[in-house]
Amino acid sequence: MKVEVGDYVLFNYIGRYENGEVFDTSYRDVAEENGILVEEREYGPLGVTVGAGELIPGVEEALIGMEVGEKKEVVVPPEKGYGMPKEELIVPVPVEQFTAAGLEPVEGMYVMTDAGMARIVEVRDDAVILDFNHPLAGKKVVFELEVVEIKKKESS
């Protein structure tokens, strides 16, 4: 039985940068081995409905046609992954917004804002430059996928 659009699929994954460094995984032991373990996170297979737009297109396309127990490695270019960085998502914010909240802005730090998560790319005397692009925007990434279970879509 092969994965088709509309099926609910459980799968495990390992996400790597092109240089082989692991940035995310559904396997707890792989997270531990690579120093990216998040204690509060529940590790295990990810469940998605294929074709519902719950995944980046490159991974979703790779799952189609796979069978339970099958493993596959897929290279995902930015266009089928996290997109290209957008200049309009890099915005200055008055430094007072940080100091008034008792925060010391530091380059490289991530902050949660009303508009979502952003990375501080520069701290100036008058402004803090925030980047709202996805951290993987513009990057080619590699995913190892393993299908664990397929629940076929309901026939209508």
Rank of each mutant, 00 (worst) to 15 (best):
E4T: 13
G6T: 05
I14Y: 00
I14G: 03
R16Q: 03
Y17H: 11
E18C: 06
E18Q: 12
G20L: 09
E21D: 10
E21A: 10
V30P: 01
A31C: 10
E33S: 13
E33Q: 08
G35S: 03
I36S: 04
L37I: 13
E40Y: 14
L46P: 03
G47V: 10
V48D: 04
T49S: 14
G53A: 12
L55Y: 07
I56V: 15
G58T: 04
A62P: 03
G65N: 06
E67N: 14
E70K: 04
K72L: 10
V75M: 13
V75Y: 08
P78L: 00
Y82G: 02
G83H: 00
E87D: 12
L89M: 02
L89E: 01
P92Y: 01
V93F: 15
V93K: 15
P94R: 05
E96Y: 14
Q97W: 11
F98D: 07
A101D: 05
A101G: 08
G102C: 00
G102S: 01
L103M: 12
P105G: 06
V106N: 04
M112C: 13
T113F: 00
D114A: 14
A115H: 07
G116A: 00
R119N: 15
I120F: 10
R124G: 11
R124V: 06
A127Q: 08
I129K: 02
L130I: 13
A137C: 06
G138T: 04
V141H: 02
K151G: 09
